[in-house]
Computed example of a mutant assay.
Amino acid sequence: MTSANATTDQAEVAYDMTPTWGEVGLLMYRLAISKEVKALEAGKSEFQKAFAGMEVLNQLLRTLTPEQRSLYERVFAEELAKQDRR
């Protein structure tokens, strides 16, 4: 087997390292309590997205099916729990 074949025969594995919103919330909280002002300023767009997204969700909640509401409640609880980590 040539090195070219070896590369094409191997399966590529990708890992998603993107933090969830709960993890971003925990990071922002930790930056706030440690008074990391410059880092918080750099994260302004993340705050904006999080709060804007919650307003969208608040307006959509009444339109969710029972299955969607169940998913919302499960994910919301999981993301809140991530922010309680020390």
Rank of each mutant, 00 (worst) to 15 (best):
residue 17 M to P: 02
residue 19 P to R: 03
residue 20 T to N: 01
residue 20 T to M: 01
residue 20 T to I: 00
residue 21 W to M: 11
residue 21 W to Y: 11
residue 21 W to N: 09
residue 21 W to F: 10
residue 22 G to H: 00
residue 23 E to S: 01
residue 24 V to W: 09
residue 25 G to S: 05
residue 25 G to L: 06
residue 25 G to P: 03
residue 25 G to W: 06
residue 25 G to K: 04
residue 25 G to R: 00
residue 26 L to G: 05
residue 27 L to N: 13
residue 28 M to Y: 09
residue 29 Y to W: 14
residue 30 R to T: 06
residue 30 R to W: 05
residue 32 A to S: 09
residue 33 I to A: 10
residue 33 I to C: 12
residue 33 I to P: 10
residue 34 S to E: 14
residue 36 E to H: 14
residue 36 E to A: 11
residue 36 E to F: 04
residue 37 V to W: 11
residue 37 V to S: 06
residue 38 K to Q: 12
residue 39 A to F: 05
residue 39 A to I: 07
residue 40 L to F: 08
residue 41 E to C: 12
residue 41 E to T: 13
residue 42 A to C: 14
residue 42 A to G: 15
residue 42 A to I: 11
residue 46 E to I: 13
residue 46 E to R: 13
residue 47 F to I: 02
residue 48 Q to N: 11
residue 48 Q to G: 03
residue 49 K to F: 05
residue 49 K to T: 07
residue 50 A to D: 07
residue 50 A to C: 13
residue 51 F to Q: 04
residue 53 G to D: 01
residue 53 G to N: 06
residue 53 G to L: 08
residue 54 M to P: 03
residue 55 E to R: 10
residue 56 V to P: 01
residue 57 L to T: 08
residue 57 L to S: 10
residue 58 N to C: 11
residue 58 N to H: 13
residue 59 Q to A: 11
residue 59 Q to T: 10
residue 59 Q to H: 13
residue 60 L to E: 14
residue 60 L to Y: 11
residue 61 L to W: 15
residue 62 R to W: 11
residue 63 T to G: 08
residue 63 T to Y: 15
residue 63 T to S: 15
residue 63 T to R: 14
residue 64 L to G: 00
residue 65 T to K: 02
residue 66 P to M: 00
residue 69 R to D: 10
residue 69 R to V: 03
residue 69 R to L: 13
residue 69 R to F: 06
residue 70 S to C: 03
residue 70 S to E: 13
residue 71 L to M: 13
residue 73 E to S: 09
residue 73 E to Q: 05
residue 74 R to F: 12
residue 74 R to K: 15
residue 74 R to D: 15
residue 75 V to P: 05
residue 76 F to Q: 15
residue 78 E to N: 02
residue 78 E to K: 13
residue 78 E to A: 03
residue 79 E to Q: 14
residue 79 E to L: 08
residue 80 L to S: 02
residue 80 L to G: 01
residue 81 A to E: 12
residue 81 A to R: 05
residue 83 Q to M: 15
residue 83 Q to V: 07
residue 83 Q to L: 11
residue 84 D to W: 12
residue 84 D to L: 11
residue 85 R to G: 06
